[in-house]
Simulated scan of single mutants.
Amino acid sequence: MINKLNRRKELRAELLERRRQLALQHPELGARLAEHVRAWLETQEDVFLVGFYTPIHCEPDLLPALSAWVSRKSARGLALPVVGRGKSMTYCLWRPGEELVEDVFHTKVPRVKRQAFPDLVIAPCVGFTSQGFRLGYGAGCFDRMLENPASRPKTLAVAYEACRADGLFEPAAHDIPFDWVATELGVRPVSGRSGPDQYR
């Protein structure tokens, strides 16, 4: 177990540095990724409320693209994650321009807390596999939020293609695969939805 945890820790550090270099040297990749997400969302007719994130550690910034998506139809909205006691995570409604405050994880959360239940949750990844498993920061917040199949929203993992980690880590028993993965190449369905290398 210790060896597996150490390998994950080393892989996480390597991929974080890889992501940092990509973000600094090729900012156009993040913009391209965000545009793919916006275009893909336009095809999801049953998605009206999107849970996303405020970027830290050089994560791709989706806010401009998601703001554009929201502005096209009044029924659309956004929500941001708020982590509570025991690292439990819920989402709260947020509109572009509303005040944000910093939480204990140094992410930005809505100052006014209005709980929401997104149709789609977008999560940043340190690394990902073709089967939709994501390597995060190790807190397990997303896995705990998604563990109830009855209330589970659609899920989209976001990462750079260079952070694809097939064969580099084994999913833990509690890891829950995401439905789609978005990179600068496009949005790919996973978890048996179609072939692992089909982007659109």
Score class of each variant (00 low, 15 high):
N148P: 01
V101M: 13
P27A: 05
Y137R: 12
K73N: 11
T43P: 00
P177F: 07
A162S: 14
Q198T: 13
A75R: 11
L11K: 11
L29T: 04
E28T: 04
A123C: 15
T43I: 09
E28D: 15
S194L: 01
V109I: 15
I2A: 14
L146S: 01
P149A: 08
R114K: 14
V109F: 02
N148W: 02
E184S: 08
A172L: 13
P110K: 11
K154V: 01
P177V: 04
E99N: 08
K9D: 13
V83Y: 09
V50P: 04
L100P: 05
G77N: 01
P60E: 02
G186I: 13
K154A: 15
P171V: 09
S88F: 08
L41S: 06
Y160Q: 04
D175A: 05
A182C: 13
D103W: 05
T43R: 14
G136L: 01
R8P: 07
L156R: 02
P64I: 03
S67A: 14
A79Q: 09
A23E: 05
E28I: 03
N6E: 13
W69K: 00
P96H: 02
F133I: 00
G132L: 03
R76L: 10
D61V: 07
P64Y: 09
H57A: 14
H106M: 02
S151F: 07
R8Y: 08
K154H: 12
T183C: 01
P110D: 03
K87H: 09
A173Y: 00
A116G: 13
S71Q: 13
K108I: 09
E161N: 11
Y160C: 03
L63Y: 05
G138N: 06
Y91K: 06
Y53D: 11
F128N: 11
R20C: 05
L185R: 13
L78G: 00
I56A: 01
A162G: 00
